[in-house]
Design a protein around this nucleic acid. Structure first.
Lengths: 232, 232
DNA sequence: CGCGGCGTTGATCTCTGTCAATACTTGTGG
DNA sequence: CCACAAGTATTGACAGAGATCAACGCCGCG
């Protein structure tokens, strides 16, 4: 783990809020693991004995139903942690995790973590903050699926990627369209059509590159209850 | 708080796993609060200074959009706790809470809780388990909205109420249909129709009473990908 | 060059939301 | 005790969003 990796670690809500020593003792001498696209980190129902810090790449968490369909419930990237809380729920992962682009991860052992929590209650507060963060993300996702149309969910997704609320932006689709579609609760075909519907709002696509004339227009589109009939 | 209330408190994942003294110190001398249907406990964005234990009645947690629509993200009942984790995320509730039937609650102060966590790491582990539990519930909800049809979601809801996986059951709709519908991500009209579609599968409704001939049939219906065209 | 994966586009169908009309339930006041 | 009003649930007709099925274009790769 080089200094820039360490900076990423310290930028996470979980490992950034605790003291240098605690963070060091949890991840300090862990080797960085490199995974290739398609690899499975763990499956739902397996014993949860570790959580992960993403140093680079993208990881998806998903659930599979008895008949084989899958629902993506989260996609994580550099600077995020996942599966921290799973270790406390009967010790089983409630979801499966798969690497969707070549990735670099830190794997943090659960037993060490538990021991540290008993010794250092401040770490528990960080863990709780982290769990709250995930809780909030899930709540927002439910809100979006229930109340927003497919084009609105896509617009919201783009706004978040642009990490700005106004002005122009050019962003790159971070992973496959099929995965974005699932993450947003729609089919790939619907994603294409949603993208087409955003064109009148100043969104143009060329391969992976998406240009947005004015992000504020998209923000407005997401927040207005209407379905954008006056935009062209 | 009488002995039966205390039994409920000790049946929660959060306060049941810690020592008698810790539980006692958190909720022991709290008065039981009584709320009437329609009262608001807190609104999203407010400072989160307490969490709640439900002794009786039903509470809904929901998000409201700028244009006034609401999405219910959870409904809690006797023996459940809610909003425990909110106090650790910038100290703001990410949702609003409203009493949907007359209820009896315990309100646990956040400052006391934080102090106890620092003193008693085992409490921290219980908090984390509790947060994990909520996390899992939300993940399942997302899975259901994304992958199941309205009748399937209703069937799943009924199965959970019946708290059995096979045999017959008679259950009572716990709160208004409109709330059930929102909770399941549909409109009240769709709920009526979903109920009608379950009739061939052995579900009959009379007022609040729902009778199920064989719960296993509903379980099967939820788990099969198909939309139930062979059920009568 | 041909193949395979991925994305787009088109035609069609199904489900759910919307709007409106109609019971049913409950509470109120004459 | 009954008439009436208000809130709640059901039913019907219709429209729209998104899924499905199928065809095609694009691009990278052997």
């Amino acid at each position: 783990m080089d200094p820039s990796d360490w900076r990423i670690v310290r930028s996470t809500p979980l490992l950034g809020a605790v003291s240098q020593e605690i963070a060091q003792s949890l991840v300090g001498n862990q080797p960085v693991s490199v995974y290739r696209k398609g690899e499975t980190l763990f499956r739902q129902g397996e014993a949860a004995d570790a959580f992960f810090v993403v140093l680079g790449g993208w990881i998806k968490l998903y659930r599979v139903t008895p008949d084989g369909n899958e629902a993506v419930v989260g996609v994580y990237r550099r600077g995020e942690t996942f599966a921290e809380a799973a270790m406390f729920l009967g010790g089983r992962y409630p979801v499966s995790a798969e690497v969707v682009t070549d990735s670099r991860l830190l794997r943090v052992d659960g037993r060490v973590l538990r021991r540290r929590i008993m010794e250092q209650p401040e770490l528990a507060l960080s863990m709780l903050a982290s769990a709250s963060y995930h809780l909030k993300a899930l709540v927002e996702q439910i809100e979006h699926i229930k109340l927003l149309s497919a084009p609105q969910r896509l617009a919201d997704f783009l706004v978040r990627l642009a990490s700005a609320r106004e002005g122009g932006a050019t962003i790159e689709m971070p992973y496959e369209k099929a995965l974005i579609a699932n993450r947003l609760g729609m089919k790939p075909e619907s994603l294409s059509r949603a993208l087409a519907k955003l064109r009148p709002l100043g969104v143009s696509v060329d391969r992976e590159q998406v240009s947005i004339v004015d992000v504020a227009v998209l923000v407005q589109f997401v927040e207005s209850g209407d379905r954008g009939e006056e935009g062209f």
